Amino acid sequence: MAPLEVKCAGVVLAAGGSARFGSQKLLANFKGRPLVWHAAETLRSAGLETYIVVNSREVASAAGRVDGIIYNPWWRQGLSTSLKAALIALYQKKCIVWMPGDMPCVKPDTVLKIASACKSGLAVPVYRGARGNPVASCRDVYALALGITGDVGLRVLLNAVPTLSLEVEDAGVLADVDFPGDLQRLPC
């Protein structure tokens, strides 16, 4: 992998309640490690600075080595509160890659591709015609993103800002974990 030309931060979004899973899914064992560790490792391997938005120290500890932890006490009010907490901390960065903590199969090359391509607006990976995650956002959308409310993420901005869709050969961009059985169906 070639190094990034733009200094880009990575955020593992890990502050949900895991209601459908039945327990804290980010601590679930996947290939001998907690699920959240894999998402953080993808960002580490891509060469991004890693920040984790969490609702407990336990989840942050399970992620392994990180550059910083951002606690979001308002996580029950939805995903938008985690975005805001990270944006406030990282506002000076030219780019942020938003990695859901329940997506352990995304390849570091995919992260590098969307981060490198993010010059304006959003950069989104597309696998076989379907948009996936993680999403990269550029500084020009931060102010708009701070206005998002509720249990939604950057996807609500897709039609409001320039969005670059990048075709990738990475089924991991579509594979998240909602239920315990999803762990056995992951493509990695």
Rank of each mutant, 00 (worst) to 15 (best):
A115S: 05
A143I: 07
L48K: 00
P3R: 14
W98C: 03
F179T: 11
V173N: 04
G147S: 12
G10S: 04
Y51S: 14
R33L: 08
E49Y: 03
Y51Q: 06
V141C: 06
A115Q: 03
M99F: 03
R131D: 05
A123T: 05
L186T: 07
E169T: 03
S80G: 08
V173L: 08
A175H: 14
L48W: 00
S82I: 01
V152S: 03
Y142P: 14
L87E: 00
V135P: 01
P108G: 07
C138L: 12
I96T: 12
S61R: 15
K94R: 13
Y91K: 07
A28D: 10
Q184P: 02
T81S: 08
G153F: 08
V53Y: 07
L144A: 04
G16C: 05
Q24S: 09
V141H: 14
L27H: 04
A89K: 14
C188K: 04
L35Y: 02
D109C: 13
A130C: 04
A115G: 02
V59F: 10
A117F: 14
A46K: 02
R185M: 11
S61K: 15
V106Q: 12
A117K: 15
S45F: 01
V97E: 02
V12N: 12
M99E: 07
S137C: 00
L35V: 06
A115K: 01
V126W: 03
R185K: 13
P162Q: 15
L87T: 02
N133W: 10
D140S: 02
N159M: 12
H38M: 04
A136D: 05
R131Y: 10
K31T: 04
S80R: 09
G64F: 04
S56N: 07
Y127G: 03
Q92F: 09
K31A: 08
A123G: 05
E49I: 00
A117W: 13
L186M: 11
Y142F: 15
G47H: 04
A63S: 09
L164F: 08
T163H: 06
P134A: 07
A130L: 13
G68T: 06
A145L: 11
L87V: 01
D178M: 09
P73K: 13
Q77R: 10
S18Q: 07
L83Q: 05
G172R: 04
P3K: 15
G153C: 12
I114K: 07
